[in-house]
């Protein structure tokens, strides 16, 4: 998984995407890679799982081998115009950037291409062995992945179009980019992941589907439990069995991939990421 230049991590909201992004970064750094973690839209989750309050727009080393940044759209836009499109410095960028910022609300794909463009721009830098991006949730991810195609379709000629075609190629190249889908074995995450998989796979290679918060079997039969006197042992056993059975039903609907165990009683986001890294690292 870590031999690609870019891993994009997505999944339905609430399944633990940011924790797993942070864990993958920690794991890659443990293997000696120089890692850049990117929060594509919201830095709170990724930042706290990496043990810092906020992330900045400039890469910042937050643990050995792991740098991190968050994408600030107006700065990314500025950088996109100047560095990627080599815009002439004819006028202060202020009004242009403000205008394009407003345009991003109305023209499909502009906001998205600036964000995904920044991610691909960083992935192309020799200083990073791998870039791992905490991407928007399932409902929005295809819009980002599709942005280069959308823009190339809207803009007939020019630098924006050329750049968009290059992005499209890099996203579609499985040696360059992989998408990691995170799912929990519950109804909505599984159903929505399966609905989105086909469209996602047409845009980017799905490197792995990770199942998060997986429970172990209890090892005690339902008959034994229901025959016991009432009390916390019985109730906790019945809840565990019930949850485990429901998880089994839903995980049967998704392809096999690494399972990440349910973490009992873990308090801080930082601990979660390290424990997940240990768990994935140990199984591979």
């Amino acid at each position: 998984m870590f031999d690609r230049s870019l891993l994009v991590v997505s999944g339905k909201g609430g399944v633990g995407k940011s924790a797993i992004t942070a864990a993958l970064c920690i794991l890659a750094a443990r293997r000696g890679l120089s890692v850049l973690a990117i929060a594509m839209t919201d830095d709170l989750g990724l930042g706290s799982h990496l043990g810092v309050d906020r992330l900045g727009y400039r890469p910042q080393e937050i643990r050995p081998g792991v740098n991190a940044l968050t994408i600030d759209r107006s700065q990314a836009l500025d950088e996109y115009i100047r560095l990627q499109l080599h815009a002439p410095r004819i006028a202060p960028l202020g009004p242009v950037a403000r205008g394009l910022n407003a345009l991003a609300d109305a023209v499909p794909g502009i906001r998205d291409i600036i964000t995904i463009g920044k991610v691909l721009f960083e992935a192309g830098k020799p200083q990073w062995d791998i870039v791992i991006a905490d991407a928007p949730p399932l409902g929005q991810i295809t819009s980002y992945l599709r942005a280069p195609v959308t823009i190339a379709g809207l803009v007939p000629v020019g630098r924006v179009r050329d750049q968009a075609l290059r992005y499209e190629e890099e996203l579609g190249n499985p040696d360059h980019t992989g998408l990691v889908l995170v799912v929990t074995p519950e109804e909505l995450p599984v159903v929505e992941t399966n609905e989105a998989r086909g469209e996602i796979a047409s845009l980017v290679d799905i490197a792995a589907i990770l199942t998060n918060r997986v429970l172990d079997p209890l090892g005690v039969s339902e008959e034994t439990l229901t025959g016991m006197p009432a009390g916390p042992h019985r109730d906790a056993g019945l809840l565990h069995r019930g949850l485990y059975d429901a998880q089994r039903r839903w995980s049967a609907e998704i392809p096999d991939g690494p399972d990440i165990p349910f973490l009992f009683g873990v308090h801080t986001p930082g601990e979660v990421a390290v424990l997940i890294a240990d768990s994935i690292g140990g199984t591979r």
Binding site: I90, A91, G99, L103, V157, R159
Partner: peptide
């Protein structure tokens, strides 16, 4: 509008 001239160079007038 100079800002538009740049926008036009980047995105094309018709858009």
């Amino acid at each position: 509008r100079p800002a538009l001239r740049l926008g036009d160079a980047l995105l094309g007038g018709p858009l």
